[in-house]
């Protein structure tokens, strides 16, 4: 039974329990990585973005096509988007095929694309483009795409995989390819240290 309270959860926590058990069973080497995909920082970053997305798209939330670049498992973003948008068509793009196999298992209604955003992304023209992993890849301005873009990056340089950190929202905006972006900054903690996350929003 799904109770009324459970139905009101924007992200169904009871599903995460099932998903985590499935990942533990079928992809045990991914368990830690998967659990990290719904950490407090991840929830904060993704819900922060979706709250702004809802404001930007409030006049028309129906049947949007959404591309999520560097999607990982889509653990948080996919359910949040399905909560605020009506009948969205969601595409996940990631170079890591196994994370997409898991994503598809968790969210059977999405479309996945196993490609490297920096090198292989075809020029997309769509309603909404999300990339919350810009610190992991080449500047977005040099990757052709058209749509309402929501990008996030950060100044957390301790992670070797973060090859493109920035130190301000303005610096991030300059590499976004968005002509007149809206800029946002927030704080987050990682390993007892204080960092900043940046978000730019605008049409390309």
């Amino acid at each position: 039974m799904i109770t009324h309270t459970m139905q009101k959860f924007p992200i169904p926590a009871y599903l995460w329990s099932e998903w985590t058990l499935t990942v533990m069973e079928k992809y045990p080497h991914r368990t830690k990585d998967f659990v990290q995909s719904y950490s407090q920082n991840q929830l904060m970053a993704k819900s922060w973005l979706v709250e702004h997305l809802k404001m930007e798209c409030i006049s028309d939330l129906d049947k949007k096509e959404v591309w999520i670049l560097g999607s990982w498992y889509g653990t948080v973003l996919v359910p949040l988007l399905r909560n605020v948008l009506k009948n969205p068509r969601i595409h996940l793009v990631d170079f890591d095929n196994e994370s997409l196999i898991i994503a598809k298992m968790l969210h059977p209604y999405i479309t996945t694309h196993n490609i490297d955003v920096t090198f292989d992304l075809p020029e997309i023209e769509t309603d909404i483009i999300i990339n919350t992993s810009c610190e992991h890849m080449y500047p977005m301005k040099d990757i052709p795409m058209k749509g309402l873009c929501f990008y996030q990056s950060n100044n957390f340089r301790s992670d070797n995989a973060h090859i493109n950190c920035v130190d301000s929202a303005e610096e991030f905006a300059a590499q976004s390819g968005i002509e007149k972006p809206k800029l946002y900054t927030t704080d987050f903690h990682k390993f007892d240290d204080h960092h900043k996350r940046y978000m730019v929003i605008g049409q390309r």
Partner: peptide, 11 residues
């Protein structure tokens, strides 16, 4: 190495 670089771009 594979385990600690799970989902880490090109590491």
């Amino acid at each position: 190495l594979k385990d600690i670089t799970v989902s880490k771009n090109h590491q």
